[in-house]
Amino acid sequence: MIELKHLSKSFVTADGKVEALKDVNLTIRNGEIYGIIGMSGAGKSTLVRCINMLERPTEGSVIIDDRDIGALSENELRRIRRNITMIFQGFNLLMQRTCLKNVCFPLELAGMNRAEAKKKAMELLETVGLPDKANSYPAQLSGGQKQRVAIARALATEPEVLLCDEATSALDPKTTHSILKLIREINRNFGITVIIITHQMSVIEEVCERVAILDEGVVVEEGEVGSVFANPRSAAARRLVFPEGNEIIVPEESGDERRLRVVFNGAEATTKPLITQMAVDVGIAANILSASTRCIGDKVFGNMLLGVDGGEEAVAKVCDYLQKAGEIVVEEVKNDV
């Protein structure tokens, strides 16, 4: 278990003090995949670097399995770091070493003999699916392959915790998916606790069980991924859930069309689009003027602006129909939206 207690970190720079973290309290359970999401500059990297004391917190403590990491000597810290390894956005492989030698690197640091280290490194390259790249240099690999080598390297010392700082942010969506799949496999097969730092919600949705939202150094929301994203209360959370912005641009009014704002608060997503289904069920074809919705798990969030012809009666029918679907709020929009 990793406990962050009242963690604060400030940097003194030429133009004043920067408070990168403010009283962060989090508990990460053994064996889970925990996400920390926030915009650029929110303090995510600082937070993750405090966990292995690459950055000393200004205040507060990091407690891993009842040991206060901040109280350790440099020597003990180096030993502990073999147990809390890290992967990065830029992979950070040694460019003048082959992939195999890169994976051997942490074992060399730990003083393992060459032959043994090589054997272990080879096994790990197989685990990440790159046994044929053992003698290639990082420059000869794609981004996804480099991250796989970095993962193999991070696993070499058999850690209990893997920290991923924007590990997929430099990768395309398909590669991101495959790396996340690998991370999930590693989490399951080796029982490694994983902390994923990202600015992309899709990453959290895909692999994390719990999430904390970090905004300007403060944890603004925390909990199960489903419930945090289902009901984003803070402005920061809403920005992340609806990055395009959920304020609707209302087009010019036309004729006797009436407008309805439909807010989805976690409605069950159905196989058939709701509006199409409504046309079939009540015989009113609504015009979707704009929509900003997204699915999280199997729930729909966001809102939609409908144009409905046919006066008061039709509007009432539509409201009635949609509200029956559950977790949907419908309100009529007047000119002054």
Binding site: L54, R78, N92, L109, T157
Partner: peptide, 26 residues
Amino acid sequence: DPNIIEAAQSMGASPFQIIMKVMIPE
């Protein structure tokens, strides 16, 4: 690249190891 040095630190490299195994060879 300072990130490479940071990566080595994150793996528990000592300053001497960083010099001999990272800074010079790289």
